[in-house]
Amino acid sequence: MSLETVVTDIKTEAEARAAEIREDGEDRASEIIQNAEADAEELLEERSAAIERQIEQEREQTLSSAKLEAKQARLEARRNVLEEVREQVETQLADLDEDTREELTRELLDAAAVEFEDAEHVSVYCRESDKALLESILDDYDGFEVAGTRDCLGGVVVESDESRVRVNNTFDSVLEDVWDDNLKQLSDRLFNQ
């Protein structure tokens, strides 16, 4: 065997080994690339799913916030309408014609007088513009006298030092009671619920 043959055999063997190493390296590189691509695809899917969840969550929050704002706006509008209705009622009570005002004042005074049957001196208060009306009505009541005025829509406040009782039968107090007792029905009727 000649030296040339040995060199050729070594060279052939080295080339075969290099080709084998190259092929193994290419296979290994291909495997690494496939794994990296699979990992990247999985990561992309996870991120996409996370972004979709975040978008859906933000959409739900925005929708919920918009619904809450709309509900608050409806409640505010209803509150404003109810306030306007109450103001209209108060205006109508303040502007009652004389006959109706006298009739209602007598009824409220009669209802209050029951509490003061044994009292010798009873003080009655009314709104400033009803003072003359009340004085004429009190001519029918022994021991009752106009003691002053109150800031109210009408009606009477009756009290006695002897019994330490005060009855507030003003239009305001009656309206407040009626309003509180019937607010839900009024709201239902006004807003067709």
Rank of each mutant, 00 (worst) to 15 (best):
M1L: 09
L3F: 08
L3A: 08
E4I: 10
V6C: 03
I10A: 15
E13Q: 15
A16S: 14
A16F: 13
A18M: 15
E20H: 13
I21A: 14
R22F: 10
G25H: 10
G25C: 04
E26F: 09
E31M: 03
E31C: 01
I32W: 04
I32L: 09
I32G: 02
I33Y: 03
Q34E: 10
N35L: 07
N35H: 04
N35R: 07
E37S: 05
E41R: 05
E45V: 02
S48I: 10
S48C: 01
I51H: 02
R53T: 12
Q54M: 09
I55Y: 09
I55E: 10
R59G: 06
R59N: 10
R59F: 14
E60H: 09
Q61Y: 08
Q61M: 09
T62L: 15
L63P: 00
S64M: 08
S64L: 12
A66I: 13
K67D: 11
L68D: 12
E69D: 12
K71W: 12
A73T: 15
R74L: 13
R74K: 14
R74S: 12
L75K: 13
E76W: 05
A77K: 12
A77H: 11
R79P: 00
R79D: 06
N80S: 12
N80C: 00
N80E: 14
V85K: 03
V89A: 07
E90D: 05
E90M: 14
T91E: 11
L93T: 01
L93P: 01
E98R: 11
T100E: 08
R101D: 00
E102M: 04
E102K: 14
L104E: 07
T105Y: 06
R106H: 09
E107G: 06
E107F: 08
L108V: 02
L109F: 06
A112L: 06
A112V: 11
A112S: 14
V114A: 07
F116M: 03
F116L: 03
E117D: 05
E117P: 00
A119T: 10
E120C: 04
H121E: 15
Y125I: 05
C126T: 15
R127Q: 08
R127N: 09
R127L: 01
E128K: 07
S129T: 13
D130T: 05
L133K: 05
E135R: 13
D139P: 00
D140P: 00
Y141H: 04
F144D: 01
E145H: 13
V146W: 00
V146D: 00
V146G: 01
G148R: 03
R150M: 07
C152L: 05
G154E: 04
G154D: 02
G155D: 04
G155L: 09
V156C: 08
V158D: 02
V158P: 01
E159I: 05
E162F: 08
V165R: 11
R166A: 07
N169G: 08
F171W: 00
F171P: 00
S173G: 04
V174Q: 11
V174W: 09
D177T: 12
W179C: 03
W179K: 02
D180E: 15
L183Q: 06
L183H: 03
Q185K: 11
L186F: 08
S187L: 03
S187Q: 10
S187G: 05
S187P: 00
R189C: 02
F191C: 07
N192Y: 12
N192L: 12
